[in-house]
């Protein structure tokens, strides 16, 4: 690093060399230590080139302000509405749970209907008379589905 480059970096990164990006900092420290240029090896030179090519504009103070604002907003967020449920994964989980619940309820309803049909088939098979609505036909027929204690009492 030449003296001109050092001055340019000083304007770019600030007066405190310790806060400069690493390869610049290394070279600046070497320059300050012995006042001479740095004896680069090819890898170090390439690393420096990569760093210089990668630099992007940015404000560290603005970054700190934004981070602290996010932390504060997290604190003030309602505990009754966890962040998870606002995230896409949370919404997807809620949707999956709702779908599962609907499926289970639908299965239960369908099974009850199947039970009804089973009792009708049983009634038919045993020669029982069915009511028009197919309901309590079995218990209407004497001897079928009647309470055995009542039969004994006769």
């Amino acid at each position: 690093m030449t003296r001109d480059e050092f001055e340019r970096n000083k304007r770019r990164f600030g007066d405190t060399v310790e806060t400069w990006p690493a390869p610049f900092r290394q070279q600046a420290m070497a320059l300050m230590a012995d006042g001479a240029g740095l004896d680069d090896d090819p890898d170090t030179a390439l690393d420096r080139l990569v760093l210089e090519a990668s630099l992007v504009e940015g404000d560290d103070q603005a970054l700190a302000r934004k981070v602290l604002a996010r932390i504060d907003s997290d604190r003030t967020r309602s505990p009754f509405l966890p962040r998870f449920f606002l995230a896409p994964a949370g919404l997807a989980a809620c949707a999956a749970a709702a779908l599962l619940a609907v499926t289970v309820v639908g299965y239960q309803v369908a099974r009850q209907q199947d039970d009804l049909q089973d009792s009708e088939l049983l009634a038919l098979a045993s020669g029982a008379r069915l009511t028009d609505d197919g309901g309590p036909g079995i218990v209407d027929e004497p001897g079928i589905g009647a309470d055995p204690t009542e039969e004994d009492s006769l």
């Binding site: 806060t19 990006p21 940015g58 970054l63 700190a64 981070v67 602290l68």
Partner: peptide, 14 residues
Amino acid sequence: LSELIARHGRGLRV
């Protein structure tokens, strides 16, 4: 945390 951001924020962002 602000000091940590000042030390490492730039490098992480780059």
